[in-house]
């Protein structure tokens, strides 16, 4: 019993004692008020009413979701990833019968290279321990097969933009997604989007491992 306790305590200590850089990063996240738009602490919105108040994507599992190199670049000069806004319902207005997007919100982060490195170090410590890692198996990318699955059978392009092919705009673009996201996270998200965001406006389908590997391999090279 005491041995288990001691183990638990030291595990907690390991989590609570990040590197000096990450500690600086945490202070920078606070002084730059990233948390005024982003949720830096979970859980994700549990009701539609809470979703409607979301100003920016959740960052409390950033360490599971992103590639660090991409983060360092993005928080120095953010670009638009969600052409329809963070919660598209908050960015649409009517033009006759049709909905059009008006002024989607942008990320306000404008960190120097040094600060961005420290913030990225900190963000990479924010992990969802329940996510399986080492799941993605890089293999030969079967582009034609992946396009049939993703643009015909499952119509992922109804909501996501495919590089060079266009697509829907109610959620993030697939342009540059391989550089941006951790493939294990993509696998987990496509398998069960509700685990990450209980109210996500993406359907949950029952994919087998082979199909998930096919799609994530395709996304890893989609630029």
């Amino acid at each position: 019993m005491t041995r288990i306790l001691a183990l638990a305590v030291s595990a907690l200590m390991a989590v609570a004692a990040p590197s000096a850089m990450a500690a600086d990063g945490k202070a920078l996240v606070e002084s730059n008020k990233c948390g005024s738009c982003h949720k830096m602490v979970g859980p994700s919105a549990q009701t539609i009413a809470e979703v409607m108040k979301r100003k920016a994507p959740d960052l409390f599992y950033a360490g599971s979701k992103f590639n660090k190199d991409w983060l360092v670049k993005y928080i120095q000069s953010p670009t638009t990833l969600r052409a329809g806004g963070v919660v598209y319902l908050n960015s649409i207005s009517l033009n006759g019968e049709a909905d059009v997007v008006k002024d989607p919100p942008k990320c306000a982060s404008k960190l120097s290279a040094g600060d961005a490195a420290a913030v990225a170090d900190y963000l990479m410590t924010l992990k969802d321990a329940s996510m399986k890692t080492g799941v993605f198996k890089p293999g030969k990318v079967k582009k034609a097969r992946a396009r049939v699955v993703m643009m015909k059978d499952e119509a992922c392009n109804a909501c996501h933009v495919f590089p060079g092919k266009g697509g829907g705009i109610s959620c993030p673009t697939f342009e540059g997604i391989g550089e941006r996201l951790n493939p294990d996270w993509m696998y987990s998200f496509i398998q069960d989007p509700k685990h990450w965001d209980p109210k996500v406006w993406m359907a949950k389908r029952d994919f087998d491992d082979a199909t998930l590997q096919l799609m994530v391999n395709f996304l890893m090279t989609a630029d």
Partner: peptide
């Protein structure tokens, strides 16, 4: 997102 806020099928994804 697809059926539109009027429900007439003119959502922001419809053009795609």
């Amino acid at each position: 997102q697809c059926h539109g806020s009027k429900g007439t099928g003119r959502g922001i994804n419809a053009p795609a």
